[in-house]
Design a binder for these strands. Structure first.
Length: 493
RNA sequence: GCGAGUGUAGUUCAGUGGUAGAACACCAGCUUCCCAAGCUGGAUAUGAGGGUUCGAUUCCCUUCACUCGCUCCA
C-alpha cells in the first residue's frame, strides 16, 4: 500500500515534468530510449542554474579551488590505471530454478573440507553459524570468498583442504546456475573511422580522472600551494545493468566533481570539512533538511584504497538514495597514474623541502540526481487552493517572474509588456496575456515561478502593480518602476 | 540482461473483428478587475513492425517503451 502511494507520487512528478517542459523521454517519436532523457525549456534552465550554483559555491567563490573541463574521450590507458578496465564489471549468474540473477561474488558460498566432515557457508563475507571451528576460521582468514579455497581446515588441521562445494541461490536455495557472464560497464567506441581493436576507446565513466591526469598541468600553472582543489562538471557514461527511477539512474549522466589535494596528515580535518560543506549545499538549494541525511559507509562498503566515504542521501518517494559521495581516497589515484605513466605527479613542499604524492578528498555529485531532488522536494499538492505547486528556490527557479495584464484590454497589455521588456534584460521573465488570471497563475505555480507581477486598473491610476508570492498567494502593491529592484533583491536572497 | 505485469489524444479513462468516444488540459475569438469561471469554435490518440482476415485498435508473433524485482552507483 505504501509502495503504491510512493509510485503515485513519482508518476505525478514525471507527468508534470512532461506537461510543463522540464524533462522528456529521449527519442519519443521512435518509441523512446530506455532511461535516456532530454531536458526541455524549463528543465535546461533549472539544470543550468543548479550547475552554476555549484560552480559558484565550489570554484569561483573559493581562493584555493580552480575549474577545468576535460574531454569525454581519453587515452585508454587512463582507464587501465584507474582500475576501471579491470574492476568496472560485474560477474552475474542466474539461478536456473528460480531465475533470480545476482552477482556471483555476493552469492552464499558453501565450502567443505576434503579430508573431514567440516562444512560451512559464507554469506556476505561472514561465516554462517558460530561453532568453535568457524570462529577459529574467521580469525585466520578474511577477504573475498575465493581466497578461502586451499586454506587449512580448522577442524582436522589438514593443510590445503578447504574446497568450494558450490554456490547457493540466496532466494530459493538452489545450486544450479548459468555460467557467470561479465558485464562491462564502460561504453566502448572507436577512435577514428576504422573499427579495429587498436582504435577501441571508452567514453569516460566518471569525470574525476580528467582531473588526476592533469594534476601536474594544473599545479604548475596556478602556482598555488596545498591544499587546493580542482572542480569539473561534465557528462559521464556507464552501461548500468539496471537503470530506472526516472532520471535517478541513467546510462548517460552528468557529474559535478571536485578533487581536493592535501597533505595526508590533514585528511581527517578536510574530510570532515567537505562533508559539512556539501551537506550545507543541498540545504542552500532549498531542500527540506528533514529529507536529507549523511550516511557513513560501512567498512565492507569501502573500496580497498579508501579511508572513508560518506554519502549525502535524499528521501525520494522511492526511498533514501545517494546524491553525492564524499571520499577520502588517500593518494591512490595519483599513485596509480604515476605507476602507469611513469610520470612524476608529485608535489614539492618548499618549507619541508620534500616531494610527495598528495592525498585527495573527493566530492562527487550527480547533476541529474540533484535536479530530481530539487523537483521532488519542491512538488506539493495545494489541496486547499486546488493547485499543484513547485516551490523551487528563487535562486534556481527557471523563470523568476511572470508578468501579466489582469485583463486583455484597457492598455494593460501594453504596460505589462513594457515592464516585461525592462525586467527580462536582467532576470528570466515570462509574459502571458491569454485566458483568466487564475489560470495563468496556476500555470506558473507548476513551472515553479516564484513571483507574479500583475497590471490592473489601479496601475492606470497610481502606477502601482501587484506582486504575488507563489507559495503564500499573498499580494502586495509596489510602484511599477521599482519592480526590477524589488525582484532582484528577492531573487538573490 | 532475466522474470512478472502494462501499452487507446497532453493527462485520466471508455469502447469495438466493420468510420474510435468522454472529461480535464491545450489553441483561437468573445467575455472577464485577482486565483483552473462562462460561451463559441479548433487541433490532437490505438507505441512500432509483421502475420491471420474481405476488413485488425481488438486475435497471433516480433520489437520498443513503462512499472516492480535481481544488480549497481553519481
Amino acid at each position: 500500500m505504501a509502495k503504491y502511494i510512493k509510485n503515485e507520487q513519482m508518476e505525478k512528478l514525471i507527468s508534470l515534468c512532461k506537461r510543463r517542459g522540464f524533462i522528456f523521454q529521449s527519442s519519443e517519436i521512435y518509441g523512446g530510449m530506455n532511461s535516456c532523457w532530454d531536458y526541455g525549456p524549463l528543465g535546461v534552465e533549472l539544470k543550468r542554474n543548479i550547475k552554476n550554483f555549484w560552480w559558484k559555491k565550489m570554484v569561483t567563490s573559493r581562493e584555493n579551488v580552480v575549474g577545468m573541463d576535460a574531454g569525454i574521450l581519453m587515452h585508454p590507458k587512463v582507464w587501465e590505471a584507474s582500475g576501471h578496465v579491470e574492476n568496472f564489471h560485474d560477474p552475474l549468474i542466474d539461478c536456473k530454478s528460480c531465475r533470480t540473477r545476482f552477482r556471483e561474488d555476493k552469492a552464499p558460498h558453501v565450502f567443505k573440507c576434503s579430508k573431514c566432515i567440516m562444512k560451512f557457508k559464507i554469506v556476505n563475507g561472514v561465516i554462517e553459524g558460530k561453532s568453535k571451528y568457524t570462529k577459529l576460521f574467521e580469525s585466520t582468514i578474511a577477504g573475498e570468498p575465493h581466497t578461502y579455497v586451499g586454506s587449512e581446515c580448522p577442524r582436522c588441521k589438514n593443510e590445503n583442504a578447504i574446497e568450494l562445494e558450490g554456490l547457493e541461490c540466496p532466494k530459493c536455495g538452489g545450486n544450479d546456475f548459468t555460467e557467470a557472464k561479465q558485464f562491462n560497464l564502460m561504453f566502448k567506441t572507436h577512435y577514428g573511422p576504422s573499427e579495429d581493436t587498436a582504435s577501441q576507446i571508452y567514453l569516460r565513466p566518471e569525470t574525476a580522472q580528467g582531473i588526476f591526469v592533469n594534476f601536474s598541468n594544473i599545479s604548475n600553472t596556478i602556482r598555488t600551494k596545498l591544499p587546493f582543489g580542482v572542480g569539473q562538471i561534465g557528462k559521464a557514461f556507464r552501461n548500468e545493468i539496471t537503470t530506472g527511477n526516472f532520471i535517478f539512474r541513467s546510462r548517460e549522466f552528468e557529474q559535478m566533481e571536485m578533487e581536493f589535494f592535501i597533505k595526508d596528515d590533514e585528511s581527517k580535518q578536510w574530510y570532515e570539512y567537505w562533508i559539512k560543506e556539501r551537506f550545507e549545499f543541498y540545504k542552500q538549494l532549498g531542500i527540506n533538511k528533514e529529507n536529507l541525511r549523511l550516511r557513513d559507509h560501512e567498512e565492507n562498503e569501502l573500496a580497498h584504497y579508501a579511508r572513508g566515504c560518506t554519502d549525502v542521501e535524499y528521501k525520494f518517494p522511492f526511498g533514501w538514495s545517494e546524491l553525492e559521495g564524499i571520499a577520502d581516497r588517500k593518494s591512490y589515484d595519483l599513485q596509480q597514474h604515476i605507476d602507469a605513466s611513469g610520470k612524476n605527479l608529485t608535489y614539492f613542499d618548499q618549507e619541508a623541502n620534500e616531494h610527495f604524492v598528495p592525498s585527495v578528498i573527493e566530492t562527487s555529485a550527480g547533476v541529474d540526481r540533484t535536479l530530481l531532488t530539487v523537483l521532488a522536494d519542491a512538488y506539493w499538492d495545494d489541496v486547499e487552493n486546488n493547485r499543484v505547486v513547485m516551490s523551487l528556490s528563487p535562486k534556481i527557479a527557471p523563470v523568476k517572474v511572470a508578468i501579466f495584464p489582469l485583463v486583455n484590454k484597457d492598455n494593460m497589455p501594453e504596460i505589462a509588456k513594457k515592464i516585461f521588456d525592462n525586467v527580462s534584460e536582467h532576470l528570466a521573465a515570462f509574459y502571458d496575456k491569454a485566458g483568466s488570471i487564475g489560470r495563468r497563475y496556476r500555470r506558473q505555480d507548476e513551472a515553479g515561478t516564484p513571483f507574479g507581477i500583475t497590471v490592473d486598473s489601479q496601475t492606470l491610476e497610481d502606477g502601482t502593480v501587484t506582486l504575488r508570492d507563489r507559495d503564500t498567494l499573498e499580494q502586495i502593491r509596489i510602484p511599477q518602476d521599482k519592480v526590477l529592484s524589488v525582484l532582484i533583491e528577492k531573487v538573490n536572497i
